[in-house]
């Protein structure tokens, strides 16, 4: 891999497309997953996340476009487990094999030592059940086993498809720290999930897709800030008067149940100035940030609307 250092861990797709019969699962998707940060991969059910990941990993053949890992197609990687670790399906294990044998069978392909197998078992908390058959594992234990397999080659990039499914709170916190830690070490981390509050705490960057198409490829803070749900809560002694002033200044004002005003389209500072000029006493002025969940709903809802109107004519 001489000279390839700069591409280490980089995952990219170019115009990646996958059609199954008449459904287009992934539609000319171009994205770059950079090292050193956790990239959240979001989208509604059936939006093409898993299909995209499978194409990146050479498990599904693209109908069009291509995907690269560290600058090369997955199928051309000489030591793939050392380039990218992946967990797509925690159920993909032989129920009759022990956890340790499962990992060893993967490790053997590329000369990963038994000590490393022991290390990832320890890291994922599976050491006590290492010699038990996987068939008896709970969903959370299988998730951990899948993550252990992804980490075997100590890769500069990891791809995890819904890794927190079935994990207990301790496990969720563990994986959050694990992913953040890996990103801090300079690895690329691409992780899909439907758990928005969890994603909000874990990811730095977001790629959002809907019906196979890119909706957003942006920083977490930027994405959430962009949501229209970010507003300013104002509590004053005369809400009626301030409301008309704010509307006159171009604000979008709604009344809350307790008489407070929820204002959009005006910065907090401008609201304060306008209130002072109108001689209204301000009791509280607070920016209420949208949550990732709200931002996500807005982004994907728009996409679905757009697609629904578009879909009939295609």
């Amino acid at each position: 891999m001489a000279g390839g250092a700069s591409l280490d861990g980089m995952i990219e797709t170019h115009e990646l497309t996958k059609r199954y019969g008449s459904t287009t699962a992934v539609d000319r998707l171009s994205l770059v997953v950079k090292p050193g940060r956790v990239t959240g991969f979001l989208g509604p059910n059936g939006s093409g996340k898993s299909t995209t990941l499978r194409m990146i990993l050479g498990l599904a053949h693209p109908t069009g476009g291509h995907a690269l890992v560290g600058g090369r197609p997955y199928s051309e990687l000489r030591r793939p487990l050392h380039e990218v670790g992946a967990m797509l399906d925690p159920g993909a294990v032989h129920p009759g094999r022990t956890a340790r044998d499962h990992l060893r069978s993967i490790a053997l392909t590329t000369g990963i030592s038994a000590a490393r197998v022991g290390a990832v078992l320890e890291l994922t908390g599976l050491t006590p059940v290492a010699r038990r058959r996987v068939g008896g594992f709970s969903l959370g234990m299988r998730q951990r086993l899948g993550i252990a397999a992804a980490l075997l080659g100590d890769p500069p990039a990891v791809i995890l498809d819904e890794p927190v499914n079935g994990l207990d709170p301790e496990g969720i916190q563990w994986i959050r720290n694990l992913l953040r830690g890996m990103a801090a070490e300079g690895r690329a981390v691409l992780v899909s999930s439907h758990l928005m509050t969890e994603m909000e705490q874990t990811a730095d960057h977001l790629i959002v897709i809907g019906r196979g198409r890119l909706i957003a490829d942006t920083g977490m803070a930027e994405f959430v800030r962009g949501a229209s749900r970010t507003d300013v809560l104002v509590r004053v002694d005369d809400p009626g008067r301030l409301a008309s002033v704010l509307v006159g200044a171009g604000g979008d004002v709604a009344s809350e149940a307790d008489g407070a005003l929820a204002v959009r389209g005006l910065a907090p500072r401008r609201i304060g100035d306008l209130a002072a000029r109108a001689d209204v006493a301000v009791h509280e002025l607070a920016v209420r940030r949208a949550t990732l969940e709200q931002a996500y709903f807005e982004a994907t809802e728009n996409a679905v609307e757009y697609r629904a109107g578009d879909g009939g004519r295609r």
Partner: peptide, 15 residues
């Protein structure tokens, strides 16, 4: 291997 999906893991290790 096909039934469990393990074949995918196998192909990840040996593309």
């Amino acid at each position: 291997e096909y039934g469990s999906g393990l074949i995918g893991t196998t192909f990840l290790a040996v593309p």
